[in-house]
């Protein structure tokens, strides 16, 4: 089983593999930051005092505060580390939710067809046509009353944006897979529609979902930061969020204080890059039309003409 999963990876050529490995390394670095935040970060994300003494305001990076401090008396380094946790939790939740909703909807829509399909495609296309950020803002507004300004609300408002993508891909693959002989064969053995969808179509139509998932995750990091930047994201007292920090750093930048903006900004750039590289790398390995098999060099021994093999040659 592991072999089957690793086979496309082993067959990739240099560049695709390099992209994938680089992406994985960067992403893992952020995952480590997120998981071990309490141990890696010297201070809590909303800690303004150490031993009852307030941190210096807008202190430049030093041995005590590696990335400096902000105008709210926060340690920028700690905020960046904690921000990784927020970003990854929100993005993981949103990808999970959108897969859980988008994939079954796409499967049903593609398989059932007809009127159901037309309605769902219409709704999804309408959602897809909206500018993503606007949609996210609207939903964060709507959800704020019910769920507050926390991580779950942020994740759910991102979910809405990405459902149509899974829906479309899964629906389109289902529509073509529905006509395949193995589905006809499943009908011929008397399988119910639910069983055809679950046991015959599902495994074959979700193959591109990991790729979209990773690419969406990268996109979601950006959207989350944008929400925070505009003040519609996670509230500062709930968790540390890079977009919010960038917003706060806006005024500092004009007065020559670079550290409050640079480090959260870099964190966003690196994580998006990392996830995008994983997505592209996966795409090249999983997608057969993009995959270039590794060409193995053939060494031919010198040709022995058949005439040289004529009778009398000893064993």
């Amino acid at each position: 089983m592991l072999n089957r999963l690793l086979a496309p990876f082993r067959n990739t050529t240099g560049l695709a593999r390099w992209i994938l490995v680089t992406g994985i390394v960067i992403t893992i670095a952020f995952v480590v930051m997120a998981v071990f935040a309490p141990w890696l970060a010297p201070l809590d994300f909303n800690q303004q005092k150490v031993d009852g003494v307030k941190l210096p305001k807008l202190a430049a990076p030093s041995d005590d505060y590696w990335f400096g401090t902000s105008d709210q008396f926060y340690d920028v380094f700690s905020r960046v580390i904690w921000g990784a946790r927020t970003a990854l939790v929100v993005v993981t939740l949103s990808v999970l939710f959108s897969v859980l909703i988008g994939v079954p909807l796409g499967l049903i829509s593609g398989f059932v067809g007809g009127w159901t399909d037309r309605m769902l495609v219409f709704v999804m296309d309408a959602l897809y046509a909206f500018p993503t950020l606007l949609l996210a803002i609207v939903f964060s507004f709507l959800l704020r009353d019910a769920l507050g300004g926390g991580v779950t609300a942020a994740a759910l408002s991102l979910t809405v944006i990405y459902i149509p993508q899974y829906f479309r891909v899964v629906r389109n693959t289902t529509v073509s897979a529905r006509e395949s002989t193995y589905v006809e064969a499943a009908r011929a053995i008397g399988a119910k529609n639910s069983s055809i969808m679950g046991r015959y179509l599902f495994g074959n139509v979700i193959q591109s979902v990991p790729v979209i998932g990773t690419l969406n995750a990268a996109d979601a990091i950006g959207t989350l930061a944008a929400l925070g930047f505009l003040g519609f994201g996670i509230q500062p007292n709930e968790a540390s969020e890079w977009g919010y920090d960038l917003n706060r750093a806006l005024d500092d930048a004009s007065s020559g204080i670079w550290w409050t903006a640079l480090f959260p900004g870099l964190a966003i750039v690196f994580l998006i890059t990392g996830l995008t590289l994983v997505g592209e790398g996966l795409n090249e390995t999983v997608n057969p039309s993009l995959r270039k098999r590794r060409i193995r060099k053939v060494e031919m021994p010198p040709n022995e003409p058949t005439t040289a093999l004529v009778e009398g040659r000893t064993r």
């Binding site: 395949s180 002989t181 193995y182 064969a185 499943a186 046991r199 015959y200 495994g203 074959n204």
Partner: peptide, 10 residues
């Protein structure tokens, strides 16, 4: 077509 009649992921 025996190549198409079996679910490839089963």
């Amino acid at each position: 077509d025996p190549n198409a009649a079996l679910n490839p992921s089963m």
